[in-house]
Design a protein around this nucleic acid. Structure first.
Length: 423
RNA sequence: GCGGGUGUAGCUCAGUUGGUUAGAGCGCCAGAUUGUGGCUUUGGAGGUCGCCGGUUCAAAUCCGGUCACUCGCCCCA
């Protein structure tokens, strides 16, 4: 086994992996397009503040999961751990806050310093969408419907459940938070070690604890739903109504809390049971305060991100290259390889018409036919001394072994139609 | 950062109570077949047994450490 390895938590995308990856990205992009989301990209690193401020100084993502460094000019930079903050920053930078709404789709690598396990890497990839401007619940519903369509087209929706919750606006979220902290502080001694720590850093997260003891305590805790004000209740009800109308199945999950500070109102996750502990396949929510936190104007927003690796693991087979035409050159009458040069010219003409053509680089006829078989070729063209004399190409059908002669003049047109019919 | 599991050929894996030259299947290369693939058959290449140290006459095997991968916790896509 070689000692040469990529750094921990990173992985090469070899062709078979890349096919699955590409399939997810292409599907996401085409679904986004139907909803009017156009692709954009932001830098892979930003000034550290871009992530530190909106994500919450104390959030785990910022305190222990970022790849941060100082560059040669002394700037504090951070490899992006998620996409939303960068997109909103770009919106503000470009002055697009004057021309709302804006709908963006993006895709690319993200970086989090974590212990890797299945479906969790230090460099991983996300596809995401952001809908900026509208405060309407329909924006939430639109974004969720888009996510559901993408998952459906990838064949993973059926094994996912959509969990939906409202975190309320800033006002009722704060009220609930203090009520929860008050309750939990009373039983602090009985909480798990992790949850005692979370009481300070992210108390809402305790609702989602996997510790048995915690779960029992939480059963009596105040519910977020009881603290929602009228506006917040109306908002989430409207979202649920529209999702139902669009045929998107969901379940209200009062314990769903997202880890990043900037979320408000609608929060949602599509969760699968097929990926061990890393069940969240797509997650997002509304983040109305984010733009202001970054120092921009007040711009509402809602969006989600989905893990490309996780989706690729779930969605199975992805399209690969078409079966090729294999052209085999044999020595001409003088024992030279002028045949190869003629075939190369033919290959190029066919390639210009979009046909995949392979010419083995060496080997006798037997070897090259074997190679053609491995490449999955249905048709093989053979061209040697006899064929050169007749100005013809032997076309072999690998399925039944039959062979026909094809005049060189007609070869390009004939093979073009043959391969177009095939696909 | 914390716990569990696993490291033997390119891949999937055997390898007995420690014993002499470490195996199989698949894959790869070549011959049988110098202009005809798949099937068959014969042969071949490919291994610091993750790494370092220890115990022993003797270590892939036992012990310690370390690294990597993996599963779970934390957190999240």
């Amino acid at each position: 086994m070689s000692k040469l390895q990529s750094p921990r938590g990173t992985a090469d995308l070899m062709p078979e992996d890349m096919a699955g990856h590409r399939h997810v990205i292409d599907t996401a992009k085409s679904c986004a397009g139907v909803f009017g989301f156009e692709e954009m990209a932001t830098p892979i690193f930003e000034f550290t503040d871009v992530f530190a401020r909106p994500l919450g100084e104390s959030s785990d993502v910022v305190t222990k999961e970022t790849y941060s460094f100082t560059d040669r000019g002394g700037e504090g930079l951070t490899l992006r751990p998620e996409g939303t903050a960068g997109v909103v920053r770009a919106l503000i930078s470009a002055g697009l806050t004057q021309t709302l709404p804006q709908k963006f789709y993006y895709q690319g690598p993200m970086f989090r310093y974590e212990r890797p396990q299945k479906g969790r890497m230090r460099q991983f990839h996300q596809v995401g969408v952001e809908l900026l401007g509208p405060t309407s619940p329909m924006a939430d519903a639109e974004v969720i419907a888009l996510g559901a369509m993408m998952l459906d087209q990838l064949g993973v929706l059926a094994s996912c459940r959509l969990h939906l919750n409202s975190l309320g606006d800033a006002e009722c979220r704060a009220a609930y938070r203090s009520a929860l902290v008050a309750f939990l502080s009373g039983v602090k001694d009985q909480l798990s070690e992790d949850s005692q720590r979370r009481l300070d850093t992210n108390p809402l997260r305790i609702l989602d604890s996997k510790d048995e003891g915690d779960r029992a305590l939480i059963a009596d805790a105040p519910l977020l739903g009881d603290y929602l004000n009228e506006a917040s209740t109306a908002h989430i009800e409207r979202v649920m109504e529209q999702l139902a109308a669009a045929g998107v199945a969901f379940e209200r999950d009062p314990k769903l809390v997202r880890g990043l500070d900037y979320y408000c109102h609608t929060a949602f996750e599509f969760i699968t049971s097929d990926l061990g502990a890393q069940g969240t396949v797509l997650g997002g929510g509304r983040y109305d305060g984010l733009a202001e936190t970054l120092g921009g104007p007040n711009v509402a927003g809602v969006g989600w991100a989905a893990g490309v690796e996780r989706l690729a693991l779930l969605s199975g087979q992805a399209p690969r290259l078409d079966a090729p035409l294999v052209l085999i050159a044999l020595p001409d009458a003088e024992g030279q390889m002028s045949t190869e040069t003629q075939l190369f010219a033919l290959a190029n003409q066919l390639r210009q018409r979009g046909i995949r053509v392979e010419m083995p680089f060496s080997g006798n006829l037997g070897k090259q036919l074997k190679r053609a078989d491995k490449l999955g070729a249905r048709y093989v063209g053979i061209f040697g001394a006899d064929e050169a004399a007749q100005k013809a190409l032997v076309l072999r059908d690998m399925q039944d072994g039959s062979q026909t002669n094809l005049g060189l003049d007609a070869a390009v047109d004939h093979l073009s139609t043959l391969f177009q019919d095939q696909s």
